[in-house]
Amino acid sequence: MRCAVAVLFPVVLMLVACQREERDTRPQSALGSGEQPTPVTTLEPGGQRPSPTDNKAASFEANAFHLSEGKRLFGWFNCSGCHANGGGGMGPALMDEKWIYGSSMESIHATIRDGRPNGMPSFRDKIPDDQIWELAAFVRSLSGNAPSSAAPSRNDDMMAHPSENRMPNAATLGKSP
């Protein structure tokens, strides 16, 4: 009996360990899928309409692999040159609760892809579409908008702020609203 438990326990453990998140091994075309309009305001004459969602957003948003890739690309594409490690510099801070052009995955994706008029460059044709989604997911994690189970948990570089999986939601800073 004791022997059976000793055998079963590792087997159960192995099975549990096999529960890994899904990952596309073959990303879609570099230039991306459809381009849906992404409003940058909540003010819409005639009442707010539900904004279309991109089904890609959900697959990237809470995915640990994509978040960690986003963190790496954030440095590689020089996002950190303007936005530092989320505190901002030449560009605005990304770790606070203020969103100039919207906080949704779709809005951030559109911001990176198409640029914004006051200085955000357009990275269309420079960054493959899936990597833009990874960047968008990571940007959300900077303000605590990613599950702590998926957000990056370590920083390979000089301490700039606590790791993303420990960042409180910027809107509440860990307090109840």
Binding site: G86, G87, G88, G89
Partner: peptide, 20 residues
């Protein structure tokens, strides 16, 4: 003074090339 004029986040030690 970029922390004020650019509304940067002081929780990031490296913001504004470290000045923040």
């Amino acid at each position: 003074g970029a922390i004020v004029s650019g509304d940067l986040d002081p929780r990031d030690a490296t913001a504004a090339l470290g000045f923040v």
